[in-house]
């Protein structure tokens, strides 16, 4: 009970802005596929094209055998879609929201309770509460329940974790993994790069094009170049101070509690000496510079820098 999605050189323009530039990719049946990219990279537009809410200016999209333009009614029957802003009725209770979404897909909460049990159980104690009074994490779970209620074969989630706390984000991804085991194809977009490693495969998008398309592991493997991480006593000003080092340093970006930098062909010792000198003169102590293992964020930032 899952479908594949084939996107063939899809194009979409909004007035003068090219939202998608001849984008092609295939998503396998039962895959948990992630779209990563900053705001404005075309993720939402792509999802709206797949759900047939928009019509492409060129190319086509197939969901299984169905064409997104001509067979849109069929596609809508088998697709569960969770738009970027959780589309819930704030003045309706949790239960009323679910019942409503069930009924517009010609089903009932009772009949399909087993489908959403895992998600819904967590918010069921609050089922009489108005959706507007829920926390971000609970809203997200309710929206997911609403998108799952009609037993979709394809689940499309547009930035489901945006604006949700870290614990809820983690729980949410665990739920997605569970869903995937029931055989649903899941497309999920996120601006958080750390979530990429939880997908089977990811597409890195920027300005309507694909920068990379592979499994998270392979993307990390392909990373070439050296990566250093450093920390000091004064992390507040470290990025500003580093940017004045200049020679040899290519990229500087904050990574968790540390700072990652890349260089142009310097080895560890050379980097160390350049940086330590500079930072010491700016009043930093406890300067630690060491080689770092690249994470998926590093790969993305590197790729985005190249383009």
């Amino acid at each position: 009970m899952s479908v594949s999605v084939h996107i063939n050189s899809i194009e979409k323009k909004f007035e003068k802005v090219e939202a998608l530039k001849k984008l092609s990719l295939n998503i396998e049946e039962g895959e948990l596929f992630g779209f990563i990219g900053p705001d404005g990279s075309g993720k939402t537009t792509l999802f709206r094209l797949i759900t047939s809410l928009l019509i492409p200016d060129g190319g086509n999209i197939k969901v299984g055998e169905l064409d997104s333009e001509t067979d849109f009614r069929e596609i809508r029957k088998i697709t569960g879609y969770m738009p970027g802003r959780f589309s819930l009725y704030h003045d309706l209770s949790v239960e009323e929201n679910l019942n409503f979404y069930a009924s517009i897909f010609n089903t009932t909460l009772k009949k399909n309770y087993h489908l959403i049990k895992d998600v819904y159980e967590q918010i069921e104690p609050f089922k009489k509460r108005k959706a507007g009074a829920l926390s971000g994490g609970m809203k997200q779970k309710l929206a997911l329940s609403c998108a799952l209620i009609h037993k979709p074969e394809l689940l499309i989630l547009d930035e489901p974790t945006t604006g949700v706390d870290a614990v809820s984000r983690k729980e949410f991804w665990e739920l997605l993994k569970k869903m995937q085991k029931t055989g649903i194809t899941i497309l999920v977009s996120t601006p958080y790069m750390d979530e990429a490693s939880l997908c089977d495969r990811v597409a890195l998008m920027q300005k309507g094009s694909l920068l990379a398309l592979d499994s998270p592991e392979n993307i990390v493997k392909k990373y070439d170049g050296d990566l250093w991480q450093l920390s000091s006593s004064n992390m507040h000003t470290i990025i500003a101070d580093l940017s004045e080092v200049g020679s040899g340093i290519k990229n500087i970006f904050r990574f968790g509690e540390k700072v990652h930098i890349t260089s142009n062909g310097l080895n560890l010792e050379e980097v160390k000496s350049v940086i330590t000198e500079e930072l010491k003169s700016k009043g930093h102590n406890n300067i630690i510079v060491e080689a770092a293992k690249p994470q998926i964020e590093d790969c993305f930032l590197d790729l985005m820098e190249e383009n």
Binding site: Y81, P83, R85, F105
Partner: peptide, 13 residues
């Protein structure tokens, strides 16, 4: 405005 129209539109209604 709230975005619920998007969810209703993707239904088979």
């Amino acid at each position: 405005e709230v975005g619920t129209m998007e969810a209703i539109l993707v239904s088979p209604l």
